[in-house]
Every structure is written in C-alpha cells, then in structure tokens.
C-alpha cells in the first residue's frame, strides 16, 4: 500500500519535471541556435561588405589582375569556404578556389541559382540573399553589385546606364565551428538537464519520504501493534511530524486501554459477586438441611 502511495506521489512529479526540463532545454537550444546563426549571418554579411568595398576601385579601373588577387587572398582565410564574383549573365568571373577542386554538385546548384537570380524579370535581382540551409556546409550570402554613375561613365570600360545590376558577389563561411559549438552546447545541456532532474526528483522524493511516508509507515506499524493488543504505554515513542493525527490515534488507544481496564474490574467484581452468591446459596442450603434434620430427627433423610 505504501509503496503504491509513494509511486502515486512521485510519478506525476517525475513526469511533469522531466517533461518540462527536457522541453525547456530543447526550446532553449533552438533559441540559442537561431541566435548563433543570426550572428554568423551578420559576420558573413560584414565580410562580404568588406570584400565589395575593397574590390570597388579595381572594378572601376577594370583591373582584373588586382581583382583576382583580392578574391584569391580572401579565399585563403580559414573560415571562408567559397568566394565568387558573378557577371551580369550569372557566369563565374572570379573564384577564390580552384573550380575543379570544388564539388561539382555545389557548382551546378549555385550556377543554376545564380542564373535564375540574374534573369532580367527576376524580382529578387537587387536583393541580398542568405543561404544557411545549404547541404554544402556553408553559410552563404550573395550581395548584388549595383551599377553606379561612375561605372557607366568610366573611361576604361562601361556598362549600359539602364542596366541596374553588374553582377554579384557570393561568399560563404564554413558551418563547422558553429556545429562544433552547438554540439558542445548540446552535451552540456544534456548533463545539466540530468543533474536538474536527479536533484529535483531525488530531492522531492527524499523530502516526501522524510516528512510524510516514514511517519505514516511508523503510524501504520503502531496501529498494527495496537490492533494486536499492545497498550499505549508499550507503543514506540510518538513521531511529531503527523501532529494531531498521531495524538488522536494515541488518545483512541488510551481510551480503549481504559475501557479494557474498566471491563476487567467489572468482570472481577462480577466474578466476586457470583462467587459470594454461590457461597451464600450453599450456606443457605446447608442451613435448610440442618433445620429439616432437626424437625425430622436424626438418622432420617430430610429429602426423603
């Protein structure tokens, strides 16, 4: 019964605490992951902006060699996984990596996407695009290289004035450091959740055991003893944790003991009274026998 009581008290607490802690951790992980991806996107945006600013003069001058050098040098950064400059037709003009070394599928995917973006009727032509769900393990940004007055009027080369877009820069940083940090965060969260769970459930169970179940078990054992006839003075010392219940229980046993005592006294008195009345009746019978013998004379049976 008490095991059942303990189970009934602990099970809902265990379910509620475990569920809420795991749910909280999952949601917290999701929040932190979103924040870290936002941070990585900001970083890649800033990197792309830096590249665009640093290539601006080389582009104006039409200095392809300097442009290729800048792109190559940025490509040597450890975190940079991809850097490309596309022209207005969506074709790769400069790449920080050897195109043969890049995976074919990625190249095909990006080229198809870039051509689609660079179509004249595409509404997203002049927008900045982020791609964080790439299967190639990169967080990438593509920023448009817009036509400016100085571009269309430059002496060295020119672009048509009505063409708003000259190409775009695509740069991607590796997701690996982010994934490593998230994996570390996951393992720490699992350890933390397990600690919280053990402490909460263990703490609640210990408190319930100490303050409720043990006093109840003690009272139940006393009740069993009392039912077996043990008087109140022979019962173990009272536990004060159950308060009035324990006092009332002992009062009941005390009243029962008193009732037994009174019953015993009454029984003894009754027995004495019975014993006395028996003796009296025997005496009376003897006296009656003597009287009869006296009237009938000696040697005669008074019953006859």
């Amino acid at each position: 019964m008490f095991n059942h009581l303990i189970v009934r008290a602990i099970v809902p607490i265990t379910i509620a605490v475990t569920g809420f802690v795991v749910f909280g951790c999952l949601l917290l992980y999701s929040f932190i992951k979103a924040d870290m991806i936002d941070e990585a996107v900001l970083h890649v945006d800033s990197l792309a902006e830096t590249v665009v600013k640093s290539t601006r003069y080389a582009m104006l001058e039409g200095d392809r060699e300097s442009l290729a050098n800048i792109v190559d040098n940025v490509g040597t950064l450890v975190e940079v996984g991809q850097i490309r400059i596309y022209d207005e037709a969506g074709e790769v003009r400069f790449s920080g990596f050897d195109q043969a070394a890049e995976t074919i599928t990625t190249t095909i995917e990006i080229d198809a996407w870039s051509k689609q973006i660079m179509q004249a009727d595409s509404p997203q032509r002049t927008d900045t695009h982020h791609n964080v769900t790439n299967t190639d393990g990169l967080i990438a940004v593509s920023i448009p290289i817009l036509n400016e007055i100085s571009c269309s009027t430059a002496a060295c080369h020119f672009h048509a004035e009505e063409e708003p877009l000259l190409g775009f820069l695509s740069i991607g940083i590796s997701r690996e450091p982010l994934e490593k940090t998230l994996a570390l965060l996951r393992s720490r969260m699992i350890i933390f959740s397990l600690m919280v769970l053990f402490l909460t459930i263990g703490g609640v169970a210990a408190l319930l055991q100490m303050n409720l179940f043990l006093p109840i078990q003690h009272l139940a054992w006393c009740a069993e003893q009392a039912a077996g006839g043990v008087p109140v003075k022979d019962l173990p010392k009272a536990d004060r944790k159950l308060g009035q219940l324990e006092k009332d229980f002992r009062l009941l046993i005390q009243q029962r003991d008193q009732a037994w005592q009174e019953q015993k006294s009454v029984d003894i008195l009754l027995r004495k009274a019975d014993h006395g009345s028996d003796r009296n009746s025997r005496n009376r019978n003897r006296d009656a026998g003597h009287q009869a013998a006296a009237t009938t004379g000696s040697g005669q049976n008074p019953q006859a």
Binding site: P12, I15, G19, V22, F23, L26, A34
Partner: peptide, 24 residues
C-alpha cells in the same frame, strides 16, 4: 523541423500526466 521535438516532448508530458490522472 527545428521545433518538432519541443512540441513532441511537451505534448507527451501533458498527455501522460492527463492519462495518469484519468487512469487513477
């Protein structure tokens, strides 16, 4: 995709508690 496990965990928790109460 990101939040599936959060909804699943809390759903299982609430409905497990509820079914435990119903059973009792």
């Amino acid at each position: 995709t990101e939040n599936f496990w959060a909804v699943f965990t809390i759903g299982m928790t609430i409905l497990s508690l509820q079914s435990y109460h119903v059973w009792n």
